[in-house]
């Protein structure tokens, strides 16, 4: 099994990056032996104007990870992770090591929806991600834009 953790660096001592789409790295860890098996460099996302979450979720889906540990996930990224059958644990903080231990202790709760709204939105019946909107966890995504989460 593989777990993808959004990270500010590339080691077990790095901190969990609270952002999913614009995280610097994704550290892919094998929870059986706490070894880093792969690192996805996502730094380019910080320059991207749009669609960072879509791109990050695609890379994570391609990595073969089955679980994501992160801070906050937007609706488009969440839709992709869901379509890929990847379970999401949000509001994770601390170091990669701490996040992994917390997950292994079994205390983690899987998310049922995104943590913040998309920065753009429009009706799009075929994509399905907006079915998730409105399920945010009563917090903004820190974007200072349109993405304020609604309470549930």
């Amino acid at each position: 099994m593989k777990i993808a953790i959004s990270s500010t660096g590339t080691t077990m001592e790095s901190n969990v990056d609270p952002r999913f789409g614009r995280a610097s790295y994704f550290v892919i860890v094998d929870p059986e032996n706490s070894q880093i098996v792969d690192v996805i460099d996502n730094r380019a996302s910080q320059e991207a104007a749009h669609g960072a979450g879509i791109n990050a979720a695609t890379m994570v889906a391609q990595s073969g990870a089955e679980v994501v540990l992160t801070g906050r996930v937007g609706p488009k990224a969440f839709a992709i992770l869901q379509a890929a059958g990847i379970k999401v644990v949000s509001e994770v903080s601390g170091t990669i090591q701490e996040a992994l231990e917390a997950f292994r202790s079994g205390s983690a709760e899987f998310s049922h929806g995104p943590d913040c709204h998309a920065h753009t939105s429009s009706p799009s019946p075929r994509t399905g991600w907006q079915a998730e909107s409105g399920q945010g966890k009563n917090r903004g995504c820190g974007c200072q834009g349109k993405g304020k989460g609604r309470g549930r």
């Binding site: 960072a52 992709i80 994509t127």
Partner: peptide, 23 residues
């Protein structure tokens, strides 16, 4: 289609393709 799109309006992973028309 995913690779040519600068705005990530289409993505493909495994045997799944998704579009995001508002992008």
């Amino acid at each position: 289609c995913r690779d040519i799109c600068r705005f990530n309006a289409v993505t493909v992973f495994g045997k799944t393709i998704m579009t995001f028309p508002d992008m």
